[in-house]
């Protein structure tokens, strides 16, 4: 046996972010030079998920309404939710999880622990004009122990380098982004960036390992309660 294997199954579950009602995410795996993907998708894009609609106010009177009026009211309310989910101020400030429930599956073989895979998540939302804007990046390392792991990865977005750039990015709807999102999975070149952290992404990952012991590696025990990444 000249390689060991790592398999990850799970889901990119949800995000908890203030100020956005619709979010989607791009997720990708980053692994070292000795790691070869054997199956799965190393790049996934989730659906554009909306925050759950707020509960409608309870009617004050329970008096039976005429059939036509009821139908009209329902039609108008459906029209309203279809037209105005993004600008409804009552939902934009609330923090309810936006659920993607998007499956993740990836398998590698390797000869070297160095370069153990990481998940890089980039979350995008829609701004007031319906344009895609970056909400933040998150990175989390695939757990080193077999079993089920619930991971919370904090999100952070790069800040504009000057107030002028900040104003221009607001006007044009182009917020600062990393040219290469995999920067967040690397150690070099990070010191020149300034970021603002806000919100978290939740992942549930099932990990299994094969032939690590045969390969001479000793993994030991997992002494963390749950492998949460950050706040």
């Amino acid at each position: 046996m000249n390689t060991f294997s790592l398999v990850v199954l799970g889901e990119l579950e949800s995000a908890l972010v203030h100020g956005h009602d619709a979010l989607y995410a791009r997720a990708a795996f980053s692994a070292g030079p000795d790691w070869a993907a054997t199956s799965g998708a190393d790049h996934i894009v989730t659906s554009l998920a909306h925050r759950p609609a707020p509960l409608p106010p309870k009617p004050v009177h329970a008096a039976p309404a005429p059939l036509l009026a009821e139908w009209l009211a329902r039609f108008l309310s459906a029209l309203w939710t279809a037209a105005a989910p993004r600008i409804d101020p009552s939902t934009s400030s609330r923090a309810a999880a936006v659920v993607w429930n998007c499956a993740v599956h990836m398998a590698w073989k390797s000869t070297n622990v160095f370069g153990w895979p990481q998940v890089v998540v980039a979350v995008y939302g829609l701004d007031f004009a319906g344009r895609d804007v970056l909400v933040g990046y998150a990175t989390v390392r695939v757990p080193r122990h077999p079993g089920r792991h619930t991971l919370y990865a904090p999100l952070f977005a790069p800040l504009a380098s000057s107030p002028l750039n900040q104003f221009l990015s607001w006007i044009t709807g182009r917020r600062p982004e990393f040219v290469d999102p995999f920067l967040v999975a690397r150690s070099e070149g990070r010191q020149v960036t300034r970021v603002r952290s806000s919100g978290t992404v939740k992942l549930v990952l099932d990990v299994f390992l094969k032939d690590m012991e045969k390969f001479g590696y000793q993994l030991g025990m997992d002494h963390t309660d749950s492998l949460t990444a950050g706040a």
Partner: peptide, 8 residues
């Protein structure tokens, strides 16, 4: 590391 200006 990068400089983080946390919102919280």
């Amino acid at each position: 590391t990068h400089v983080d200006v946390p919102s919280d």
